[in-house]
Design a protein around this nucleic acid. Structure first.
Length: 447
DNA sequence: TCTGGGGTCCTAGGACCC
DNA sequence: TCTGGGGTCCTAGGACCC
């Protein structure tokens, strides 16, 4: 918590719907719902006119259609238009301060202290009013709600208090007065589950929360969450405004109009999702070691399966290979309504390793330097009860054996470590690339 | 014709290492 | 040989946010 209200939070009002109303004047003043328009679509954004009829974000579009009157516009999102407007607004924020943290396409924090502004209440109020006006003019009528406070959480709560097109400045010293009457749901990180748990011990407002001891709170909602809420209830928040956060994962998923059962179709869809993820990874110059498959079944039960590889991947084919194999281990009976493919454990470097990897593949691949490096080559490191699936240039992929595990690593040598019950002595067996024991063996049985 | 898509962070257990 | 604690990695799931 700072001694002056120097953090500003901007939240653009009903952003997607506002851009649509700006671009299509006939929609102004009318209910507009932006989101999936198919049978399984949900609402992304409802204009304030549509909210008056009960339409809400995350509601199924079918439900919104039931609530809204004839003449309501139901539109599919036009992300490029939103992105363009968002970038315009973020640019205006960067004129205020070099420290701007975009939270999403329609939301950002600004550290006014880094911009050399008058940080008095009158000063930041005037600044915020000017900003709102500038945004409305530059965007052609998109409005935003602004909060200014001594911390991120207070700024964010401020922008929520007066919507749409509002402004709330919380002066230093007023934090608890503002905070305590609010429902606990106002705090970031308190969703339906946490609110329910708190309600069971008669905690409804932030003031109620303030009365809980740290021990009671962490027992109730967990260590990290508990300490976080304990501090937020005391306006104790020193999180800095961070300009660029590196992405930690990249994923793509799709809910299908009809549940999928056909294996060929499933493979096709996995390939398409992997292609989307791979191309985004390649465009951003990253790759990741963990591939995750997400599946939602006909009955909405959702599960994930993941595998961490020895090396980062960004190639759609490799991603798809892993995802397809993971799908093989999932019960598909009854049909799947959603598939998702993701890559996490991202790393930026890669470049320096390319040469070494190619060299490793060449020195080790019996079929020559131009052989594709993505096809697994089964090998059998004899003696021992092991069958290993070996990817040239990618080290070794571990496989479960009858009674133990095998794991490989190293660039141009294959390390096989036997764990668990085994019949051969020695914890580690290292095979050089030209070891005669590295012989093609029976294809491994993929699950 | 209930329930999207893109993310982040946390927890918990097992394996493994020191 | 027994006991044990701490740290890290991996997997799966859940809560939450916009």
């Amino acid at each position: 918590m700072r001694r002056e209200p120097s953090i500003l939070h901007l939240d653009l009002d009903a952003f997607f719907a506002a851009v649509e109303q700006r671009d299509k004047p006939s929609l102004r003043g009318k209910p507009v719902v932006v989101g999936g328009t198919g049978g399984r679509g949900v609402v992304s954004t409802a204009s304030y006119e549509a909210r008056a009829f009960g339409a809400r974000s995350a509601m199924s579009t079918v439900e919104a259609r039931r609530l809204c009157p004839a003449g309501t516009a139901f539109l599919s999102p036009r992300f490029p238009a939103y992105k363009k407007t968002s970038e315009l607004v973020m640019g205006l924020l960067r004129e205020l301060s070099p420290l701007v943290e975009p939270v999403s396409i329609d939301e950002a924090y600004v550290d006014l202290a880094a911009g050399g502004h008058d940080l008095s209440v009158a000063g930041v109020t005037a600044l915020a009013l000017r900003l709102k006006e500038t945004i409305a003019v530059a965007t052609g009528g998109v409005t935003g709600s602004v909060g200014v406070g001594t911390s991120k959480s207070l700024a964010k709560i401020g922008s929520e208090l007066d919507k749409p097109d509002g402004l709330t400045v919380v002066p230093a010293g007023d934090e608890l007065t503002v905070l305590h009457p609010l429902p606990v749901r106002s705090l970031g990180g308190v969703g339906p589950a946490t609110a329910e748990r708190l309600a069971q011990v008669k905690v409804k407002t932030v003031g109620d929360l303030h009365r809980l001891s740290l021990i009671d709170l962490t027992t109730l909602v967990g260590q990290a969450h508990g300490t976080g809420l304990y501090r937020l209830a005391r306006a104790d928040d020193d999180r800095p405004v961070v300009t660029d956060r590196e992405a930690k994962s990249v994923s793509a998923e799709e809910t299908y109009a009809r549940d999928l059962t056909d294996p060929a179709r499933l493979t096709l869809e996995i390939d398409a999702l992997a292609a989307r993820v791979g191309s985004r990874l390649q465009r951003s110059g990253t790759s990741g070691r963990t591939v995750t498959l997400k599946v939602r079944r006909y009955d909405f039960t959702t599960l994930t399966r993941s595998q961490t590889l020895p090396h980062p991947v960004d190639d759609p084919r490799q991603i798809a290979d892993v995802a397809r194999r993971l799908l093989g281990g999932v019960d598909r009976s009854g049909g799947l309504r959603l598939l998702g493919v993701g890559v996490s454990g991202l790393s930026t470097f890669m470049q320096g390793d390319l040469f070494a990897e190619r060299e490793a593949a060449e020195s080790v691949d019996p079929s020559g330097p131009d052989a594709p490096v993505t096809e697994p080559v089964p090998v059998d490191p004899r003696p021992g009860p092991a069958v290993v699936a070996w990817y040239p240039g990618q080290d070794v992929v571990h496989r479960e054996l009858g009674s133990g595990w095998v794991w490989g690593s190293g660039l141009n040598r294959v390390t096989v470590r036997f764990e668990g019950p085994r019949t051969t002595p020695g914890p580690v067996r290292t095979l050089a690339a030209d070891d005669p024991d590295l012989q093609p063996a029976d294809p491994p049985v993929w699950t």
